[in-house]
Design a protein around this nucleic acid. Structure first.
Lengths: 181, 181
DNA sequence: CAGCGAACTTGAACATCGTTCAAGAAATAT
DNA sequence: ATATTTCTTGAACGATGTTCAAGTTCGCTG
């Protein structure tokens, strides 16, 4: 239902009807809609992880082109799974309630894919520094995808967005390498 | 109320009590909560615009450092106006309802600040190309700020985030300039 | 198979929202 | 002073997440 109608289109009563039970029975499977959303997010992250893993392996081995490939795969995944991908970031818990451990763990895994190629590019940097660089790079690409796929402003055609992402990732890496030297 | 309790903390009844009228009377000022949120967003964008304008003028005139200053100002603004800034991006209209014109107009203005320094760096590029580059750069910085200020993952200390943003903006520009040459 | 307890299921009920609207109050025009 | 327009009120409606007492089913044991 999230995939079809977005986070806001997920209603417990509709869900209950779809799976064939009373609305109250949903709460035997899940304590909250929050948990439900996080569980869906977990699956989405798993599929995203698989896509990024494939991108990491396939194609040219050069670290730079691997990173470009990963960024484009992220873009494609977001475009093809728009609502599910949005749900990962749109959802906010109430302030007091903490994320369950399994959910927190999920999210850390994403930077892993970027980490590997970065070690090849920056052999001098410490693991902590590399982790920070990885997160920065990921965040920058995420921003381009997020605003690029937003309907609110003028919608950017996907091929143009991909081109921009590839260009900026190459530029970022060029720049980082040049400054590290 | 958005500033204090976030978008989800905005309730028409609380709002009516605060401004001293019946809850129904809110709809004389505004047709929707959607419109209310957009109007608040308009004010936020105006203040953001002022902050970015100041950053554009002040300090070193070099285009590169101007862009770094603008990026850091954006980061600071988001941190200091966290909930209001989030409201700009969290809010989604129903699919059928269109944004009013005054709201669409607001959003375009942001890239303006980046555009100017970019023309100095890339005199060969066409206005359309520059516009695209401007949006890419903005989106990348936006992503770093968005994920950096997210409480969901490990919260990044603000000084570290600023350092990362400055480093990546410089790297992006270095890289773009090098590839343009 | 009968009986018992645990687990599940149901759907009504509750609280909280945004939104509407008839009825009354206030302001303004004649 | 009266009529007309405008504003204000707060009850009511429909959605929605969540809870819960009552009913139902299931699995085990004698």
């Amino acid at each position: 239902m999230i995939a079809e109608r977005g986070l806001a289109g997920l209603k417990t009563r509709d869900l209950a009807r779809e799976i064939g039970c009373a609305n109250g029975a949903v709460y035997n499977l899940v304590t909250d809609v929050d948990e439900l959303i996080l569980r869906v997010g977990s699956r989405t992250l798993l599929r995203l992880d698989e896509a990024l893993s494939a991108a990491e392996q396939a194609g040219e081995r050069s670290p730079q082109e691997t990173l470009v490939r990963i960024a484009l795969t992220y873009c494609d995944f977001a475009a093809e799974n728009l609502e599910l991908w949005r749900a990962l970031f749109e959802h906010r818990m109430e302030v007091d309630k903490a994320l369950p451990d399994w959910s927190v763990n999920d999210q850390m895994q994403l930077f892993r894919h970027i980490y590997q190629p970065l070690t090849a590019l920056f052999p001098k940097r410490s693991p902590e520094e590399l982790g920070i660089t990885a997160r920065s790079l990921f965040s920058a690409v995420h921003g381009m995808v997020a605003l690029g796929l937003e309907q609110k402003l003028v919608a950017v055609p996907l091929p143009a967005l991909r081109k921009e992402i590839a260009a900026l990732v190459r530029a970022m890496i060029d720049g980082l390498v040049a400054r590290a030297a």
